[in-house]
């Protein structure tokens, strides 16, 4: 496998991902359901982008597409200069693990693992040594303010704390892009804003941050907002 460019590019004018005429549809019986229609998106390295739109407009689908989890029906997608269409399942797994950090609305922690172990999961799949991954996971737990909770199970943590673990896990392999799908959707406003603060801090440190949200406040914070409506981009720019 070709060496993926891992050094974050700080110049915001360099596109880290380019989507052209991307479409996604589902065949439901005889009806074809168009979820994404002719999406043209370019996102630069280090950018902070908000994706907004009504429920069912295709925001999550677009985010998953960006994160190489979902496969487009047609169109083109370059991620960091590589044509994603040409990659096989193993390559896509590797990209997800190494360069993308997912933060989900429902946290998606593995219940039988404790805080550090959850953070270690992506490192394990990248083949980090036991010692290295344990050390790094601990550091990340401290960073998100859970240094004293490292042996706790997800069920013993509050929603806000679980989402912090998820963020720490997303940072495990120092990804280029952080993708957050309604990260504050399941949280009260206070812990929601704490989570958002952590994410924005990461952006300030140079990460490319893409957040799906219903919160206009977040959109105001972001450098750019992409608004989806019925699978189409209705607005793409600064507010």
């Amino acid at each position: 496998m070709q060496q993926f460019n891992k050094t974050p590019e700080f110049k915001t004018d360099k596109p880290i991902l380019v989507m052209k005429q991307l479409c996604k549809s589902y065949q439901l019986g005889t009806v074809q359901l168009q979820v994404l229609r002719n999406i043209d998106v370019t996102i630069n390295s280090g950018e902070y982008v908000a994706i907004m739109g009504p429920s069912g407009s295709g925001k999550s689908t677009l985010l998953n597409m960006i994160g190489c989890l979902d496969h487009p029906t047609s169109g083109q997608y370059w991620l960091s200069g590589r044509n994603v269409f040409e990659l096989n399942d193993d390559d896509l797994s590797l990209i997800r693990g190494a360069h993308i950090g997912f933060v989900f609305q429902s946290f998606n922690l593995i219940q039988q693992l404790n805080v550090v172990e959850n953070i270690e999961v992506p490192m394990y799949y990248q083949g980090l040594s036991e010692h290295e991954s344990a050390q790094r996971a601990r550091k990340l737990a401290v960073m998100v303010g859970l240094g004293d909770r490292i042996t706790h199970r997800p069920s013993e943590l509050s929603g806000g704390e679980q989402q912090r673990v998820a963020i720490a896990r997303a940072l495990a392999n120092e990804p280029l892009i952080i993708l957050a799908d309604e990260p504050t959707g399941n949280l009260d406003s206070e812990s929601g804003s704490e989570i958002l603060k952590i994410l924005v801090d990461l952006h300030k440190q140079g990460k490319t941050l893409i957040v799906v949200t219903h919160d206009e406040g977040i959109a105001t914070d972001a450098q750019r907002t992409i608004r989806l409506f019925d699978g189409r981009i209705k607005q793409n720019g600064e507010r």
Binding site: D89, D90, S93, R96, G97, A98, F102, N108, I110, Y125
Partner: peptide, 16 residues
């Protein structure tokens, strides 16, 4: 199933 989805999103290959 969900755990499998999570692991796949976090970089697990089919083989893993």
């Amino acid at each position: 199933t969900r755990e499998i989805g999570i692991r796949r999103a976090l970089g697990a290959k089919k083989r893993d």
